[in-house]
Amino acid sequence: MPAQCSGLLDPALAAFITSRISVQIAACDGRGPATLVRGLGCRVSDDLGTVTVLMPRSQALPVLAAIEANGRVAVVFSEPETHRTVQLKGVDARVEAVTAGDEASLQPYAAAMAARLAPFRVPEVFARALLSASPDDLVAVSFTPSQGFGQTPGPRAGMPLVDGKP
């Protein structure tokens, strides 16, 4: 991979979306309504050009089918304790097998999210039930982010990202 920024992601934004925060992935195949699934983590390629989100295959079937149909994807990342929220979109999304590293990231992801949700009095057992998956049920979706939007609640929600910042 060439060590060159693709433009949309900068190191700070890449660090934010991979900091084990809340993720939801949406897709739309053009025939039915848009659909969505909760994600279980994210990684970014070294050149910051490719974003990969993880999700349980069993929960994501309609989302995966839509991505396979047209490659269009929207992913929202939100940090629960600050509500800082960013949405990335791409048109070249593809479904991929996960790596051993992805499987190993599941437990730390659930633990980190449980800690983030604890101040909201969300029991850890609840967070772990919501954010756990069997490693053999895990699937990845990778895409090149072509559009980004700040979605932190407030009047600026929905504005395009400027220099990776909402």
Partner: peptide, 21 residues
């Protein structure tokens, strides 16, 4: 109590996803 998510689709068929308060 737990924020929901909503997925919508624009006129060009591009998806959008956001949290619902």
């Amino acid at each position: 109590i737990v924020p929901a998510g909503i997925a919508t689709c624009d006129a060009e068929g591009m998806p959008n996803v956001t949290y619902v308060s």
